[in-house]
Amino acid sequence: MSSDSLVADQTDHAGDEIAVTAAGALPWRLNSSDKDQLEVLLIHRPRYDDWSWPKGKLDPGETIPECATREVAEEIGLSAPLGIPLPPIHYHVPAGLKIVHYWAVRVNGAMLVPDGQEVDSVMWCSPEKAARLLTNPSDVGPLEHLVSAHARGELETWPLVIVRHAKAKPRSSWTKAEGDRPLAATGMRQAQAVGRLLQAWKPLRIVSSPWLRCVATIAPYAKASDAKVKLDDALTEHRHGRRPHKTAAVVEGLFDKQRAVALCTHRPALPTVFAQLGEHMGSRLRGLLPDTDPFLAPGEIVVCHVAHGSKEKIVAVERFRPFDD
């Protein structure tokens, strides 16, 4: 598992080993009477008598985004896609150094139901009030980044997810059509893990190469979510090799609807995919896209957060490897 967020932690903990990893989110909304007024949600935990953000520790075998979405669902009853990544915070607990990864999560009129045990009440308030009420001073850092992103028009985003298909059976042991080469046993487990991880962003559209190893990679998520799947020959290895501009056009077309979408393709097509995505981001972010072969490991994903209302603006990128054995 790996997470490469484009938000860097500024605290110096050089040499400190992380003892506890946790994840959560900063729920936010725009005031119903004043759409420019940002509000955030604080939770109260009776066990500690504190005000904080929904968060919790990583379960065994769980990725960090999965942990964040699970904890938000458990603590306040909200099932919503993760938005932009926010700066992680570090602080010491009895076990040692603790890191908490945060994302912004928009609440669009959903009814929130605190679990009653870990969270006994919630409060919507202005960011200024939240900064005063937060018990842990470190929790102010992610809040400041969220407020700054809102001011820049980079808080309201939708996710564009790139997936490299999971591990396939070796070419050397396959004598039939290349498009029919299936996933290996490891690849089938990776596909299940990809399906769980994609739930963190909930894409309702999937564009994929029609070759079996890509279709099998996205199948668990598609079945679990009822996502609409479109198969496009331009994403196959062979078609990309002959007409890479057609592959680039498919990537460009993902921006048209400005809705959450995932694309699944093959290693040889990834340079073209990332080059096209690079046209929609500044040089700093572009420099963080994978740029050397094999670009992504089998089953690995890149999440691009695209600002709403701007086809030209990817404002954050993340990278995750959900399963490896």
Rank of each mutant, 00 (worst) to 15 (best):
M1S: 15
S5L: 12
V7Q: 11
A8Q: 15
A19G: 03
T21P: 06
A22K: 08
A25P: 04
P27Q: 07
P27V: 03
P27K: 03
R29Q: 10
S33V: 13
K35H: 13
Q37L: 14
V40S: 07
L42M: 03
R47Q: 15
Y48A: 14
D49P: 05
D50G: 13
S52L: 09
W53H: 10
K55Q: 09
L58C: 06
P60Q: 04
E66R: 10
A68E: 11
A68L: 09
V72A: 08
E74L: 12
I76K: 06
G77H: 10
A80R: 07
L82T: 00
G83Y: 00
P85K: 02
L86C: 01
H90P: 06
H92S: 14
I99S: 15
A104D: 06
R106A: 12
N108D: 12
D120K: 09
D120A: 10
S126Q: 10
S126E: 09
P127E: 08
K129E: 15
R132G: 11
T135L: 02
P137H: 03
S138T: 13
P142E: 00
P142R: 00
L143D: 01
S148Y: 09
A149N: 04
A149S: 06
H150M: 05
R152N: 11
G153A: 04
E156Y: 01
W158A: 11
V161A: 11
V163K: 04
K167V: 05
W174H: 04
W174A: 04
R181S: 05
L183S: 00
A185T: 15
M188Q: 14
Q190C: 07
A191P: 00
A193Y: 00
G195R: 04
L197S: 08
Q199C: 08
A200N: 03
V207T: 10
S208Q: 05
W211V: 13
C214Q: 03
K223H: 11
S225I: 03
K228C: 12
V229T: 09
K230Y: 13
D233W: 11
A234N: 12
A234C: 07
G241P: 01
G241Y: 07
G241K: 11
R243A: 15
R243K: 14
A249V: 07
L254A: 10
F255M: 10
D256E: 14
R259C: 12
P268F: 07
A269G: 12
L270H: 06
F274V: 05
F274L: 05
A275K: 13
E279D: 07
P290G: 10
D291Y: 09
F295H: 10
A297D: 15
P298G: 08
I301E: 02
I301V: 14
V303R: 07
H308T: 09
S310P: 08
S310W: 09
I314F: 00
I314Y: 01
I314T: 03
E318Q: 14
R319N: 05
R321Q: 15
D324Q: 15
D325A: 13
D325L: 12
D325M: 12
